[in-house]
Amino acid sequence: MHIEVLGTLAVSVNGISVTPTAPKARQVLALLAVRADQVVPVDSLVEELWDTDPPRSARTTIQTYVLHLRELITTALESSAEGEKRTAKDVLMTLPGGYLLHSGDGTSDVHEFERLAGLGYRAMDAGDFAGAARYLCEALTLWSGPALVDIQAGKQLETETRRLEETRLCALDQRIEAELRLGQHRSLLAELTVLVRRYPTHETLCGQYMLALHRSGRRGEALDAYQRLRATLVRSMGLEPSAWLRKLQRSILLTGSDGGRAARDEHHGVPLSTVC
């Protein structure tokens, strides 16, 4: 089985798609896929499909969707030239309280992303910034768009997609941190310009943008970036920037316009990346 959720939903068995076209059946498969190899309670499926107002037939309807998914899986299993010993019930299992999508020896883009990101984080901890950047870049290329972008999400999937987005952002800011450590500030400017507009209250990205600007000799723009973030935080949340970002701003204020040594030293003393 091959599972992709980091973008559009795609689930296949023996290279044959088992992704249905009906919206609610797709929701069921999406929740099973994003929690592959874990039991998904029936109550979670009910909430995903109907929130707090399920019909009386909710559980029966879910059984119907599961039967439809098993029909697709059966067709895919029967296509195997070697003859599959598994049945659809071995792949989409009924267990006490819910259902489990068994990936077997298959692949999952989420699992691969987590594996590569983990290697990247360990490389960062070891001071291997080139290795960290390489692993984290490879992990991020697995994303083709927002998670489950083609699925009409209910509460359960909204929670899962938010969780996945946080893991993506964590890997992203660690990759940028690694590349800053490697002195790639100028090549990061275009990407960071887009990111700080997309995430206007994300302090880590703002700090990285400030540092990249300052090291590129654009001290005034770095300070402007701080003021924009501060204004956004105060207006939208009633909060001031955190202590480490204020410290970085003060460091830039106290240095010249050449992106000099003081700001570089300040960077190594301030955690520009969130704890992932």
Rank of each mutant, 00 (worst) to 15 (best):
R264W: 12
E266L: 06
R175P: 03
I252N: 00
E114F: 02
R86K: 14
E165A: 05
H268S: 02
I16Q: 15
T274C: 01
V149K: 15
S108R: 06
E266M: 11
A171K: 02
E160M: 00
L245K: 01
C170S: 08
V11C: 08
P271T: 06
E203L: 09
E112P: 06
V42G: 05
S80E: 11
S251F: 03
L119R: 15
S242W: 04
Q38E: 15
K85P: 00
V91L: 14
T193R: 15
E82M: 04
T167M: 10
Q208W: 15
M93N: 02
V270C: 02
L192W: 14
P23C: 14
S144T: 15
P241I: 06
A130H: 12
G104L: 08
G269H: 06
I151L: 04
P96F: 01
R122F: 02
E177Y: 09
N14P: 03
S103N: 03
T60A: 14
S44I: 00
Q27L: 00
A58R: 10
G120P: 09
S236A: 10
E203V: 07
A10N: 10
L6W: 12
V66W: 02
G15K: 01
L45Y: 14
H102N: 10
A132P: 04
R250E: 05
T141Q: 14
E166H: 07
T94Y: 02
T60V: 14
T161S: 03
D53H: 14
L172Y: 11
P271I: 05
L157C: 05
E47T: 05
V18P: 05
R264D: 09
Y65T: 00
V28D: 11
E166K: 06
L164A: 06
Q208S: 11
P96L: 11
M237L: 15
L29N: 09
Q208C: 13
G145R: 09
P41F: 13
G260W: 06
V28C: 12
H102G: 00
A36S: 10
A139S: 09
T60C: 01
E165Q: 13
G83Y: 05
E191L: 10
E203C: 07
R186I: 06
E166L: 05
L188Q: 15
L6T: 07
D109K: 07
V40S: 09
V18D: 12
L100N: 09
I151K: 07
E203T: 09
L233M: 13
R246M: 02
V42T: 15
L92M: 14
E158H: 08
R26A: 00
L157V: 08
R197N: 03
T87F: 03
C276Q: 12
A88T: 09
T204C: 08
L245G: 00
L69C: 01
T74K: 15
G259Y: 07
L29P: 10
F113W: 11
P96A: 06
W244L: 04
G154S: 01
L32M: 13
V18I: 15
L45T: 06
L188F: 12
G97D: 08
Q152F: 08
T21R: 11
T94P: 06
L116P: 07
A58N: 09
V40G: 09
